[in-house]
Amino acid sequence: MAVVQRVFVTGKVQNTGFRDWAVRRAQECGVTGWVRNLKDGRIEMLIAGEDDAVTAMTEACRQGPPLARVDHLEANADSERVPKGFTKRFTA
């Protein structure tokens, strides 16, 4: 069953390659969506796909790339329409 989750990642996550890492990881997990920096220092993602793929992507984000330090991850169900592929977006 396809699900959509909005994920917010807090910690030392900007300027660590997190967004590029998320694009690569999303392709590996087989999910679609997008990732962007937020002005408050967090990362926001919209992740869509089969339940197990979304769970795998979300769990990977709890660790993040090597230079990141994830202090908190919040994931909530969402209903936003998700584009094909997984892309980086501009800071919001």
Rank of each mutant, 00 (worst) to 15 (best):
K39I: 11
V31A: 03
Q5P: 00
V35Y: 04
E50T: 10
G17Q: 07
M1L: 12
T87K: 12
A77H: 08
K88V: 15
Q5T: 10
K12N: 11
D78P: 03
A53P: 01
W34H: 08
I47E: 00
G41M: 02
E59N: 07
A2I: 08
R69A: 05
V7Y: 05
W21L: 02
D51R: 15
T58W: 05
V3N: 05
D52A: 13
F86N: 03
L67M: 14
T10W: 11
V3A: 09
A2D: 11
T55N: 08
P66S: 12
M1I: 11
L67Y: 07
F18Q: 02
F86Y: 10
Q63W: 00
T32E: 08
D40C: 04
T55M: 06
C29N: 05
D52R: 06
C61M: 09
R42F: 01
A2Q: 14
D40I: 01
G30D: 10
A75K: 07
R69Y: 08
M45F: 10
T16S: 15
Q63I: 09
T55Q: 14
D20Y: 15
A2V: 14
G49E: 02
R25Q: 14
A22F: 03
P83Y: 04
R62E: 06
L46D: 01
I47D: 01
A68W: 03
V82E: 02
G17E: 05
Q27A: 12
P65W: 06
K39S: 13
T91V: 15
V54D: 03
T32L: 07
E50P: 08
Q5A: 14
A60P: 06
D51E: 13
R25P: 04
E28M: 08
A92S: 15
V31C: 06
C29G: 07
T16Y: 06
W21T: 11
I43W: 00
V4W: 00
N15H: 14
Q5D: 12
C61I: 01
A77W: 03
W21V: 09
M45S: 08
P66D: 08
P65R: 04
T91Y: 09
R89D: 12
Q27K: 14
K12A: 09
G30P: 01
T91A: 12
G41V: 06
K88D: 11
V54R: 02
R62S: 10
D20V: 07
V23D: 05
V54G: 03
